[in-house]
Amino acid sequence: MSGTVRLLLAWAALMALLALTLGAAFLPLGPAKPWIAFAIATAKAALVLWFFMEMRSERGLARLAMLAGFVWLAILFALTATDYLTRAWMT
């Protein structure tokens, strides 16, 4: 598969996911809605990273460097949420 075709396919997948996330937002999914929205956003980001940012042809080090920010953000969000989600338990 030529590089250009691969990029075009990735773009098409991204557009499909955008349509999907927009459609899902209007479905009665209740509390699962934000989870689905962020799961699709993560999938889109993964496509951008993998194809557009060429992580597919990079070696381990570059992938690690790219991933580090996301992993560290997960630490920030998880431990901050530990506080916000359990504050109500105190009273």
């Binding site: 560290w72 630490i75 431990l79 530990t82 506080d83 916000y84 359990t86 504050r87 338990w89 105190m90």
Partner: peptide
Amino acid sequence: GFMVWGHHMFVSGQSVYASAVF
């Protein structure tokens, strides 16, 4: 070292459960 910051906030009104984790 990135996972311990809440120990600066034990008396700040942070959830005590979070404090235990930190």
